[in-house]
């Protein structure tokens, strides 16, 4: 196994998508889809060998879960749904398949321990954006007439230059996968203890959560005055004082009590990227303004009215009228 097989796989993938796109017999399309799925599955399965052959090395950080089957399921569903989305005749179904893609990638996010992102994705994308798309699709459908029954529009059925597009796309895929397998040698595996230390450090900013955690771990304990979580090579701990005791105890903090993903994201968002947060808000505000402007009722202005509004003379064949107009309004603002 070497890059050539990878490229061959990409070629097969291109052929698969191409076949899936042609508005032909269903059998052809299904065959294409299956072929594509097989290719992707192979690529994923062959990853270890490919990695060893092509010199890449990245493995996920130690301590990560190894969810083999779940990953396969989510990724294959995502890809299949994406292919179906671009090949379906009806726009509504495309949107629905996109929803499926979103859900699958939310699942992938979960596997990557990014829970917040997963839910945010589902809420924002699937819940808001795609619903908007659906509304617009239904708004922009052509009304059925006598000679044109409800069905697919011609421009939906026939793809535009599928060959070239597939070729171009899969060249890109070949290169990207080449990079992914070949890897960037300098990509260094993350240092887990350092990350944990940073996480404990971040938690210090959330004093109430710290109190809750301490109370949770050791009932009746409170963090000592002025105490912060400290990280040491052995682990993290915090100085606490139990009720009814006159001395401080060191409470070791287990790794399960690391701040959750939501807490981390929230902290970073506010502590490290406040300006971006504000700007994101501004962007949304602008989008709202734009939407309001666009949705105004459009008045069809005639050519003359537009010119008048712009302060220009009327056109030639209206010269007599304009001459009269000018004669009658000599001190006009022209």
């Amino acid at each position: 196994m070497d890059p050539k097989l990878l490229y061959f796989a990409c070629v097969l993938g291109a052929a698969a998508v191409y076949l899936a796109l042609r508005p032909g017999k269903r059998g052809v399309r299904i065959a294409g889809s299956l072929l594509g799925l097989g290719v992707i599955a192979w690529m994923l399965l062959a990853t270890p060998q490919l990695l060893s052959v092509m010199g890449g090395k990245p493995a996920l950080a130690e301590g990560a879960a190894r969810p083999g089957l779940m990953f396969a399921a989510f990724s294959l569903i995502a890809i299949a749904a994406a292919v179906r989305m671009i090949t379906h005749d009806r726009p509504v179904y495309s949107a629905l398949y996109f929803v499926l893609v979103v859900l699958s990638s939310a699942g992938l996010f979960l596997l990557l321990q990014a829970e917040f992102m997963a839910f945010a994705l589902v809420i924002v994308y699937a819940g808001a954006i795609l619903i908007t798309y659906m509304f617009v699709i239904m708004l922009a459908q052509q009304a059925p007439s006598t000679d044109h029954t409800v069905g697919e529009a011609e421009y939906d059925v026939n793809p535009r230059e599928p060959g070239i597009a597939c070729g171009v796309g899969f060249i890109l895929l070949a290169v990207l996968s080449n990079m992914a397998y070949g890897g960037v040698p300098q990509l260094k595996t993350a240092d887990v203890p350092a990350a944990q230390r940073q996480a404990w450090q971040a938690m210090n900013l959330m004093s109430r959560d710290v109190e809750e955690m301490v109370a949770d771990l050791m009932p009746g304990a409170k963090p000592a005055a002025g105490a912060t979580i400290e990280s040491a090579p052995g682990g993290a701990f915090i100085t606490v004082r139990r009720e009814g005791e006159a001395f401080d105890t060191r409470l070791p903090l287990p790794p399960e009590k690391l701040p959750s993903n939501v807490q981390q994201v929230g902290l970073d968002l506010v502590a490290k990227f406040p300006v971006s947060l504000e700007l994101a808000g501004v962007i949304l505000l602008m989008a709202m303004f734009g939407a309001v402007v666009l949705a105004r009722k459009q008045i069809e202005l005639g050519e003359d009215e537009i010119r008048e509004a712009a302060g220009m003379r009327k056109l030639g064949f209206h010269a007599e009228e304009s001459a009269e107009a000018r004669a009658s309004a000599p001190g006009g603002a022209r």
């Binding site: 070239i164 597009a165 070729g167 171009v168 796309g169 060249i171 890109l172 070949a174 290169v175 080449n178 990079m179």
Partner: peptide
């Protein structure tokens, strides 16, 4: 554009 980008990328990377 995509084709050009693909070609460029192929050239540089591969």
């Amino acid at each position: 554009m995509a084709g050009g980008a693909a070609l460029a990328v192929v050239l540089i990377v591969v």
